[in-house]
Amino acid sequence: MITTLIEKPSRSIWQRWRWLLWVVVIGALYDWTISGLKFTGLQESAGVVSRSIMAGLVHPQWSYVYDGSGEDLVSLILQTLAIAFLGTIVSAVISVPFAFWAARGDHERFFLRSGSGKVVLTLIRTFPEIVLAIMFIKAVGPGSYAGVLAVSIHSIGMLGKLFSEAIENMNRGPEEAIVSAGGRPGQVFGLATLPTIMPEFFSYTLYRFEIAVRSASILGMVGAGGIGTPMIFAIQTRNWPKVGIILLGIVIMVLLIDSLSEQLRKRLI
């Protein structure tokens, strides 16, 4: 019978007490966080307001759902979807060249091309969509057109990144096959690269569409069309039954679009 004991691996003092350092760092961080914020505390009206919000949510203003004026819930929800759809399609098309710019190549030295592309995509992604919407409102006036432009530019940041990662990870076999059979670059691109990459592009575009629906529903708060505009007016005028019905509409719209898009994406890949 073997009786040698397995020796317990010895740990240095640093390894043994490292956790204490983390505790001190995180503790200091939270101390700074909580001491820095000025809590306004509950307003006296908070109780009344939250109770009336609840009442509004329970008794939504059903008459707002459809009244044929074009300013009702159904038409504005459809308009929101139109903004998201158009913006996503446009940005998907613009994203393709950005993606090839930012995708890391095999023979690239120092990654100058792909690196610069990645930086540009990060900058686009970090630029707040709301500010973009306000800038486009200056250019084309308030309304859903500004919303479409904001969605199409902002989405490039994320779609370009996802597309470029798809290009980096794609299967190179079909391309090599066409090259070895003597295909021209155009043929390689059309017959091998595009068909290999397309399903993934579609899937990411659908995913981005889900996000665009959410952002299109709030872009109206700054005047860029869609359901957000009546929403912010209803909140400012404390019209809680109307807020209730709009919230209900947004929740149903997002749930429907998410499940529809999930079904489609499952079929694609």
């Binding site: 914020l37 000025k38 809590f39 306004t40 505390g41 509950l42 307003q43 908070a46 307001v49 939250s50 919000i53 709301i130 959410r214 952002s215 529903s217 709030i218 708060m221 957000g228 929403m231 912010i232 909140i235 404390r238 807020v243 919230l247 947004i250 929740v251 997002v254 749930l255 998410d258």
Partner: peptide
């Protein structure tokens, strides 16, 4: 998860008043 962040913000500004709360 369906509720967008700015929408929540608009509602909570109405409840808690303007400020970081």
């Amino acid at each position: 998860r369906t509720l967008p962040d700015l929408l929540l913000a608009a509602i909570f500004v109405a409840v808690f008043g303007i400020g970081s709360t």
